[in-house]
Nucleic acid binder design. Structure first.
Length: 606
DNA sequence: ATTGCCTGCCC
DNA sequence: ATTCTGC
DNA sequence: GCAGAATGGGCAGGCAAT
């Protein structure tokens, strides 16, 4: 077995190839970026965030398993000492240890390209004191991660690493138009109080949070004229062929702005009604065709609601403050509706800055809550926090100052999402009956998970399945539940359908005796292909279900006959239909009766 | 051709 | 997506 | 505070069975 072959160039690692999508090759070929190797990549782009070690595994386990693991001539044939030095990095990697990555990285420059000496690993490890080593590992890992989230190409990174090592890496592999950046994310919060706690009076912007699809749009004017556009999803999938209407929009936009060479925008693509301009549901958007869509074939029009600018004409803007990036974006690229009706619209997200006034902010939130076509607000810190000299040394143990950079791949509190359905008293809360369950997996093997829930049908006098639920339960609750509904007690739980219920398309492993009521929260009511709940009350005779269902609490005070019923559900659904602006007043007739509990409509204080 | 089932991706 | 748990 | 795990509804697309 040859030890000299660099397995980096092999098409894939057998062990890991199955689930890996061919993202890398597409990234590398786009805009004729300088591909380092011709390898048809098999690297899953987002695995870095799961564990750096697991990704480098692709590069280096390849190396190692050829050169070390499956090279018995290097080891004794029978019982190789499990911790023999040459195997150490492999072990670390297999154990998912992050420092394994750094270990490998540090040794990378020592690889002779065609002849790897496995002992290199430990030689280096042994020479350096453990703490020095681990701190070096940490900073190496940190640097690599930072480079990776702005330019997720292993080919480029490994190539640069072999040439210039860690130090020159950021300059060698910078953010590049055509290579997607891992998007910045927002942390969930549940009140304005929490905003002020976190931001402590620093100015922020509140943006409407639209219910669409995240899109990072790259635009590059090529030297010979044509304008290249790429659209990437939140997980960096290339969606360009799904959105010819967005591509077309960006091309005309650059025709209007002949001075512009290149840019990267962050945005939400939202389905819109072409006639009225009102927003359509997420479900409408997701019914669009996804592959090789032709502009004339587009059936659902969209608006591109832009909210950030990451790159402009050769300048990387990630480290600028949000205020700077935003004003650059707004001033340079005003909202625009193309004449060609087939093209997407270019719009800025609606927003209200905290500097305007408390009243305006309050109104903004209330508007967001009342219209049913938005999810809530995104709160974004506008400026980097500055630590003044006085407080520097002496004052309290300060937290790290907040920054308003574009923090690729991070869920920070400089971006917060305040969704209506997080806030108690707002959003859809249902009282549902557990009527069945499935056997759990993994850490939930000992318990029932998910649980099947039903509404109450007063006409038939039995529950009707509406959705499954697996979120919001504590381990302790699961335990209790497994005792309350045990197959040992056939009066409560059974493999066969002993109790009168309708299940629609749901086929649980076990059935529960309808016996209790739980409060379940969700974001939206959906028209469901498998639920038959309230199906006689919907236009399409499809049933209704719940988006993002999660358990809130047991309703000991309710019997199953007091659970939410079909008409309550149907009213919720109707009230959320077609409600863009003010036009929904006639429809709202949700009876706030005994079946629901709206008692705790706590206003949120601003 | 049509239907059903599974995967992969969106949220 | 949401949530809980363990480091 | 963060990563990891388990799994929600629902769509298009692809493939196999009818």
């Amino acid at each position: 077995m040859s030890t000299s072959k660099r397995r980096i160039d092999r098409p894939s690692t057998p062990v890991h190839s199955k689930r890996r999508k061919d993202t890398q090759s597409r990234l590398d070929s786009f805009f004729s970026s300088p591909s380092v190797s011709e390898r048809p990549g098999k690297v899953k782009a987002d695995s870095f965030q799961k564990s750096i070690a697991k990704d480098i595994e692709i590069i280096d386990v390849d190396l190692l398993d050829d050169d070390v693991v499956s090279a018995p001539e290097h080891q004794s044939s029978s019982s190789p000492k499990k911790n023999s030095s040459a195997l150490r990095p492999v072990k670390l990697i297999q154990a998912g240890r992050k420092d394994a990555f750094a270990n490998v990285q540090h040794t990378t420059p020592d690889y002779a390209p065609l002849a790897v000496d496995p002992s290199t690993y430990t030689t280096i490890s042994m020479d350096i004191a453990q703490d020095t080593l681990s701190s070096r590992f940490r900073s190496a890992e940190h640097l690599l991660r930072k480079v990776f989230v702005q330019h997720p190409s292993y080919d480029h990174i490994v190539g640069a690493l072999l040439e210039v090592g860690l130090d020159g890496l950021p300059q060698r592999v910078p953010l590049t138009v055509g290579i997607p950046v891992y998007p910045a994310l927002g942390s969930p919060i549940r009140s304005f109080e929490e905003i002020y706690e976190r931001l402590n009076d620093l100015p922020f912007s509140a943006e409407l949070k639209y219910d669409g699809q995240r899109a990072q749009i790259h635009v590059l004017r090529q030297s010979d004229g044509p304008i290249d556009v790429r659209v990437f999803s939140r997980h960096l999938e290339d969606m360009t062929s799904k959105y010819p209407d967005v591509t077309g929009l960006m091309q005309v936009l650059l025709e209007i702005h002949p001075e512009t060479q290149s840019l990267i925008l962050d945005s939400e693509i939202v389905a819109i009604d072409r006639a009225t301009g009102s927003l359509k549901s997420f479900q409408a958007l997701s019914s669009r065709a996804r592959k090789d869509v032709r502009l004339e074939k587009v059936e659902i029009s969209v608006g591109v609601f832009v909210f950030d600018l990451l790159y402009l004409d050769g300048e990387i803007l990630l480290d600028r403050s949000f205020r700077t990036r935003r004003s650059l974006m707004r001033n340079r690229f005003p909202s625009y509706i193309p004449e060609n009706e087939l093209l997407a619209r270019f719009q800025h997200v609606d927003s209200c800055d905290s500097e305007e006034s408390q009243i305006q902010l309050q109104n903004f939130w209330e508007t967001a809550v009342s219209r049913h076509d938005t999810e809530g607000l995104m709160i974004k810190l506008l400026d980097h926090e500055v630590c003044d000299e006085d407080s520097k040394g002496k004052l309290q143990a300060r937290k790290k100052p907040l920054s308003a950079i574009y923090d690729a791949d991070k869920r920070t509190f400089s971006w917060m999402k305040l969704k209506k359905d997080y806030v108690s008293g707002i959003g859809d809360s249902l009282d549902l009956i557990p009527i069945g369950a499935w056997y759990g997996n993994g850490r939930k093997v000992k318990w029932w998970s998910p649980i099947l829930l039903g509404i109450w049908d007063p006409d038939q006098g039995h529950p009707v399945a509406i959705c499954k639920c697996m979120s919001g339960f504590t381990d302790a609750f699961y335990k209790t539940l497994s005792e309350q509904f045990s197959l040992d007690d056939a009066s409560k739980c059974s493999r066969s359908r002993l109790w009168d219920c309708e299940f629609g398309g749901f086929k649980p492993d076990v059935y529960f005796k309808p016996d209790m009521v739980w409060e379940i929260r969700g974001a939206d009511i959906t028209l469901s292909p498998i639920s038959i709940a309230a199906c006689h009350l919907t236009s399409s005779s499809k049933g209704l279900s719940l988006r993002f269902p999660r358990f809130i609490r047991v309703r000991d005070d309710k019997t199953i006959m007091q659970a939410s019923d079909a008409s309550f559900l149907a009213n919720l659904w109707k009230s959320q239909q077609g409600k863009s602006k003010e036009q929904d007043d006639e429809l709202i007739d949700v009876d706030v009766d005994s079946t629901s509990d709206y008692s705790e409509m706590d206003d949120i204080d601003i």
